[in-house]
Amino acid sequence: MPTPRSLTGRRRSRPLYPLLACGLIGGLAAPAAWAASPGTQTGPAGASVSEQRLPGPSAPRGRVGLWTSVNDSTPNRVYWGRTGDVARVGKRALRTDPALNGVWRSFLTMGTGDLHRRGTIREARLLIQNTWSQSCAPYNIEMWDTGRIYKSTTWKSQPRWYNWLDTRHPGPSDVCPSRTLSFNVTASARAAQRNKWPSMTLGLKASNESHPNAYKNFAPSTATLRVTWS
Rank of each mutant, 00 (worst) to 15 (best):
R12F: 15
R12P: 13
R12G: 11
S13V: 14
R14W: 13
R14L: 15
R14H: 11
R14F: 13
R14S: 13
P15C: 02
P15L: 00
P15V: 02
P15W: 05
P15Y: 03
L16Y: 04
L16V: 00
L16T: 12
L16G: 15
L16D: 13
Y17P: 02
Y17S: 02
Y17T: 02
P18S: 03
P18G: 00
P18K: 04
P18H: 03
P18Q: 06
L19M: 10
L20A: 05
L20R: 12
L20K: 07
L20S: 05
A21M: 01
A21C: 02
A21V: 00
C22M: 01
C22R: 12
C22A: 12
C22D: 15
C22Q: 11
C22K: 01
G23I: 07
G23Y: 00
L24R: 09
L24V: 04
L24Y: 08
I25H: 10
I25T: 13
G26S: 09
G26P: 08
G26T: 01
G26V: 04
G27E: 01
G27T: 09
L28T: 12
L28S: 15
L28R: 07
A29R: 03
A29W: 02
A29S: 15
A29D: 13
A29Y: 00
A30W: 07
A30E: 09
P31L: 02
P31Y: 02
P31N: 07
A33I: 03
A33F: 08
A33C: 12
A33G: 14
W34K: 12
W34G: 14
W34V: 15
A35M: 09
A35P: 00
A35L: 02
A35T: 04
A36H: 06
A36M: 08
S37V: 01
S37G: 06
S37K: 05
S37H: 03
S37Q: 10
S37L: 11
P38K: 05
P38D: 05
P38E: 00
P38G: 07
G39M: 06
G39D: 07
T40K: 00
T40F: 00
Q41C: 01
Q41I: 05
Q41K: 06
Q41P: 00
T42C: 08
T42I: 14
T42R: 12
G43M: 05
G43W: 02
G43Q: 07
G43K: 05
P44Q: 06
P44Y: 06
P44S: 13
G46F: 12
G46E: 10
G46Q: 08
